[in-house]
Simulated scan of single mutants.
Amino acid sequence: MNSNKTILKTSDWVKGVSRHGELIIGFIDSMSIIQEAVNVVVAESDNEELIGKTIPMSVNQVESIPEAVNKDAGQLEFLIDLALSTGDKEWFNELSAELNTKKQTVN
């Protein structure tokens, strides 16, 4: 893998540019170390047709996005929707618990 970048792993959030020049933000669903490729589930893109789809990208096309330590309620709600759309029950439960804790501390 590319030595000047953070080592990527499954579930990392990444940003990059597709081979067609589209801006991509998403998370790594799977990867092939041999092919130096990752499959990215697109959460945001300037090409709306890609949102929600999984696309292959070279590790050289993406870079890791640092995880925000404190997510606000809007970010958590967006991620919960994403977890629902991808069928990731464990992530959904984790995010829901985090949102509930945040709401309880505000009240």
Rank of each mutant, 00 (worst) to 15 (best):
M1Q: 04
N2L: 01
N2K: 06
N2D: 04
S3M: 12
S3P: 05
N4Y: 09
K5A: 06
K5E: 12
L8W: 00
K9V: 02
T10V: 15
T10R: 02
T10M: 04
S11Y: 15
D12A: 00
D12T: 08
K15D: 03
K15Q: 12
K15I: 09
K15T: 11
S18H: 01
S18C: 05
R19Q: 14
R19S: 14
E22A: 00
I24M: 05
I24D: 01
I24V: 14
I25C: 07
G26R: 05
F27R: 07
I28L: 06
D29C: 10
D29K: 13
D29E: 14
S30A: 09
M31C: 03
S32L: 02
I34E: 13
I34M: 15
E36R: 12
E36Q: 15
A37T: 15
A37D: 10
V38K: 07
N39W: 14
V42P: 00
V42N: 01
A43H: 03
A43C: 12
S45T: 02
S45H: 04
N47D: 06
N47R: 08
E49N: 08
E49L: 14
I51T: 01
S58L: 13
S58A: 15
S58R: 10
V59M: 15
Q61G: 05
Q61Y: 09
V62N: 07
V62G: 10
V62F: 09
E63Q: 15
E63V: 13
S64Y: 09
I65N: 08
P66R: 13
V69L: 08
K71T: 07
D72C: 06
D72H: 06
G74R: 07
G74S: 15
L76T: 01
F78H: 05
F78A: 09
L79S: 01
L79M: 12
I80D: 02
I80Y: 03
L82T: 14
L84C: 12
L84E: 13
S85Y: 08
G87K: 01
K89A: 08
K89G: 05
E90Q: 06
E90C: 06
W91F: 08
W91T: 11
F92I: 02
N93P: 03
E94K: 11
L95D: 04
S96G: 08
S96T: 14
A97R: 12
E98P: 05
E98M: 10
L99Y: 10
L99D: 00
N100A: 14
T101S: 12
K102C: 05
K102L: 10
K102N: 05
Q104S: 11
V106T: 10
